[in-house]
């Protein structure tokens, strides 16, 4: 048997192979794909449609207010004064009231949420929420690889250690992007109103923002999962922080309506910046300066967290 020539394991080749492995794992899983669709549907149904804040102020709710057919107006309210009373058409007044209230409602909505329908507002918040949990969980999946010995097997091959780490991060990111696309599509079908300034090019921005958050979060969770001896720890940690992170951000409600202490948290919460970036790019009239701030913060967050995460994981894998 002739000795075979030496092969050169490359970072890209290994990264691709390991990423494809992960993609196959969930793309071949119909239940998993179904979940990707069902989860946002539930959220939209529960939060977006049932808690429809805008409806409280909308004309529809005033429809059954009883207005008499004829409204008498006492003489001293009428200029020039006349004896007796004059009559105004009740229907007309009712229409005016409805219109006015409705206008006020829309203004309130626009002032508070930036858009007139809560559904659009909330759907985008949901994208960042789901993106966040997905990334954290995907970073965690390395726990299984370690448990089942797959990681040791991979470590005994000459594949660059970086490929192992980046494949997890890349997988988390791709997953998050797919989910974002699914949610945005579903939401649009169910009535999300894209702003007139939206073009498909904006989607690159959406993906870029998601990419930044995913890279940061998944690499930190990767390191955390690699280093925690108990499998349950990362799980517990995720369930501990997701709710607080969600409520201490603009995913569901505007920051300006929050008490001061919560505002302080929301202003450092990367979720707020991701959500704002996504809203700027989809449902709001694009405010470039705000979007720039969002991206700068997300970029900063991604750089810091992924450096920490990647360094820690690297150390662990080459111990």
């Amino acid at each position: 048997m002739s000795r075979v020539k030496e092969y050169h394991p490359s970072l890209l080749r290994g990264l691709w192979a390991l990423t494809v492995r992960e993609l196959k794992k969930w793309l071949n899983d119909p239940i998993m794909l179904l979940m990707l669709v069902i989860q946002p549907l539930i959220w939209m149904g529960l939060l977006g449609k049932s808690m429809n804040l805008a409806a409280m102020f909308s004309a529809g709710n005033l429809g059954n207010i009883e207005v008499p057919e004829k409204i008498p107006i006492p003489g001293n309210y009428v200029i020039p004064p006349a004896n007796g009373v004059i009559y105004v058409s009740g229907t007309m007044v009712s229409q005016i009231i409805q219109q006015t209230v409705s206008d006020i409602g829309a203004n309130v909505m626009r002032n508070v949420f930036g858009v007139t329908d809560y559904f659009s507002y909330m759907s985008i918040g949901m994208i960042s929420m789901i993106v966040m949990t997905t990334t954290m969980f995907s970073g965690m999946s390395i726990v299984w690889d370690r448990r089942l010995g797959f990681l040791d097997k991979v470590l005994s091959t000459p594949v660059p250690r970086g490929a192992i780490i980046f494949s997890k991060v890349l997988n988390a990111t791709l997953r998050a992007m797919l989910q974002a696309t699914i949610i945005l599509t579903l939401a649009t079908i169910f009535g999300l109103q894209l702003s007139p300034s939206f073009t498909l090019i904006n989607m690159f921005g959406v993906y870029a923002a998601i990419f930044l958050l995913s890279v940061g979060l998944s690499s930190v969770f990767l390191a955390f999962s690699l280093r925690s001896t108990k499998l349950e720890r990362p799980m517990q940690f995720i369930s501990l922080i997701t709710m607080p992170l969600m409520f201490a951000s603009n995913t569901l409600f505007p920051i300006t309506l929050m008490p001061d202490w919560l505002q302080a948290v929301a202003y450092v919460n990367p979720l707020s910046y991701l959500t704002d970036a996504l809203r700027q790019l989809t449902i709001l009239t694009l405010d470039v300066s705000k979007l720039t701030t969002d991206f700068m913060y997300l970029g900063f967050f991604a750089t810091v967290l992924s450096s920490i995460g990647i360094v820690l994981s690297w150390r662990y894998l080459s111990k």
Binding site: Y7, H8, P9, S10, R13, G14, W16, A17, L18, R21, V154, T157, P158, V159
Partner: peptide, 10 residues
């Protein structure tokens, strides 16, 4: 094949 890729085998 996954294993082979990790070794960089064409």
């Amino acid at each position: 094949i996954l294993c082979a890729d990790l070794y960089g085998i064409p």
